[in-house]
Design a protein around this nucleic acid. Structure first.
Lengths: 330, 330
DNA sequence: AACGTTAATTTGAACGTTCAAAGCAGCGTA
DNA sequence: TACGCTGCTTTGAACGTTCAAATTAACGTT
């Protein structure tokens, strides 16, 4: 392992000068700098992260807890998020450490931070009164959530505006001529689902469609649930000409049901999903969906996190990003 | 942040004694140890990982590159593996750092190791002549692969014996009375797929079933491919009474096709998959499948990795684990 | 010619831990 | 009484970096 000292000796300067060449090149005279740079290149020197970590009192690591994906459960958004997050983290000298989520954050999360193995956490899939949020907040552990958590604790969060997304979906459906839209979503209590529904209903109301003409079905988020819901919907009321689903998986089911009834998605019934999962583009016909700006979410999560590290006392920051409509053929 | 020194002062001993209480308790007299332990508890002291890392010249981090999961692509085994790996790593004081896979390992992997951000890597989805394997081996970077890579470079690896798995599947099918089994697998060149097929054919031969009576279809690994393959198989030869698929996703398709032909999986046609994905247990009927000992793989990967760190010159170790049959209803 | 100024570089110290060696009792033995 | 031994504890040093302060050189001012 070559260290600063090795480079310094080779270039005939002190270790601090080498450090300066790397961290503050303008403090070093050009000829010296070139000599040092040559030495660095010749020796293939790379600064030791552990030493930097000790000195800076930062691990430059971000903890991310993963829960095992259950049967049938796919989390396409999470998957893209992990990628985006690790890329954005790398951009600012950070990295992502993953660990298995346990029941009690005090057992898994706290020790990781107490030992300064990580500087803090990113939480996903937060639910109302999330234990993790409560435990971390109480222990002054820096963290940022992707998605707001409904609970009583105020904390840094980055979220995609579900209300706007609902509006986008409804507007798209109506602008394509739909007059009798329906909505398939999750059981009551899901923050995201309820916001999407609210936005959807708002646009419908603005368009003069009476609330009682709009059927809202609540199911789980699996494909079969989508199939069943759509069948119920279309059999119960054949005039329904648009179905918006709270997530793409449900929309996949809707699409299937539509086809099984010999209807054409995109013609007889408009179908719109949520999240722009990788599947969406590859369905037949490709699914129109409300996309989440996953990369931007990751960016904001990182910058919010760094800001929190820099100033633990700063006011809580909640960022709300705009989703976008991905118009395809349904 | 409380350090060893704080604890030492509080307990009225030297920092090294505190260190000993934690790392070699038997070197410390009982009364002293108790005093120190009390101080540790009172102050809530946890040793600083960055300092330990610097001292030990280890980051205690294992790099794992993730490639973005494409459309429709689910990797149920990988998913469980990541979990198991991070758990097994934690057991020995290690953690898993994930980062996005790029085309060139020299750009993503090498710097992570040169800076000692990670101590080495775990590679999954290795293919023949994998660039990553070549680059890491050439640069003496410690790594272990899950799954053998076909290339010319010998390296540490942990794999599940596909040949045994194929035998297991065939034996199960035949012992349930099947006389005309077929096999659906991937395009030629897949190490895992070919091994599974070979084991399968071996048992069939042993049972006296002539090779020309066994149809082998090669498709991709998606559900639709399974559907199509099974339809081709069963329409082409209605006497086929067992279909073994190289992965559960294919088997899901097979199951669907079987049902669409008004046949009963498990009665008219035996269906056996591979990998015991989370889906398998929740299908209707639940899928019989050859399971991979994912947790044990993770364990072996970790122990192999540690052995490699301890002795870079040790002979290459390739571990082959036995898969197991998960008998359900098909 | 002495002095202040600025730029460039070096030295000292510290981050928190652990290894290696040294120190110190207390005790039994010669 | 001196010696070595054992068990327990402390001190010194080092891992590789960077901040802060000190040093040195070069140069223009008065």
């Amino acid at each position: 392992m070559t260290s600063l000292m090795d480079v310094a000796q080779r270039a005939g300067v002190s270790r601090q000068t080498v450090s300066n060449v790397l961290n503050a090149p303008d403090r070093v005279a050009s000829p010296t700098r070139e000599r040092v740079e040559a030495a660095i290149a010749e020796l293939g020197y790379r600064p030791n992260r552990s030493a930097q970590n000790l000195r800076s009192r930062r691990s430059h690591l971000l903890g991310l807890d993963l829960k095992p994906t259950g049967p049938e459960e796919v989390s396409p958004v999470l998957d893209r998020f992990v990628h985006a997050l690790s890329e954005e983290a790398a951009r600012v000298g950070y990295h992502v450490l993953v660990f298995p989520r346990a029941d009690d954050a005090a057992v898994t999360h706290l020790p990781l931070h107490a030992t300064r193995t990580v500087d803090g956490f990113v939480l996903v899939d937060t639910e109302a009164h999330d234990r993790r949020v409560e435990v971390l907040a109480k222990n002054d552990v820096p963290f940022v959530t992707f998605g707001r958590s409904g609970g009583g604790v105020a904390h840094d969060a980055v979220d995609v505006d579900g209300h706007v997304g609902g509006r986008l979906a409804a507007t798209e459906a109506l602008s394509r001529g739909a007059r009798r839209p329906a909505f398939v979503t999750w059981p009551k209590g899901s923050l995201a689902g309820d916001a999407r529904l609210a936005g959807f209903l708002e646009v419908c109301a603005e368009a003069g469609i009476p609330g009682e003409d709009i059927t809202v079905l609540r199911r789980l988020h699996r494909v079969e649930d989508g199939v069943e819901a759509a069948l119920t919907l279309l059999r119960g009321d054949p005039t329904i000409d648009a179905i918006v689903a709270s997530c793409d998986l449900l929309a996949v089911g809707v699409l299937r049901a539509v086809r099984s009834l010999a209807l054409r998605a995109g013609h007889d019934v408009r179908v719109i999903g949520f999240d722009d999962s990788p599947i969406a583009a590859h369905l037949d016909p490709p699914l129109t969906t409300v996309g989440q700006p996953v990369r931007e979410v990751a960016q904001r999560v990182i910058s919010t996190f760094l800001a929190r590290l820099d100033d633990p006392e700063a006011p809580v920051r909640v960022e709300l990003l705009e989703p976008h409509l991905v118009v395809r053929l349904t």
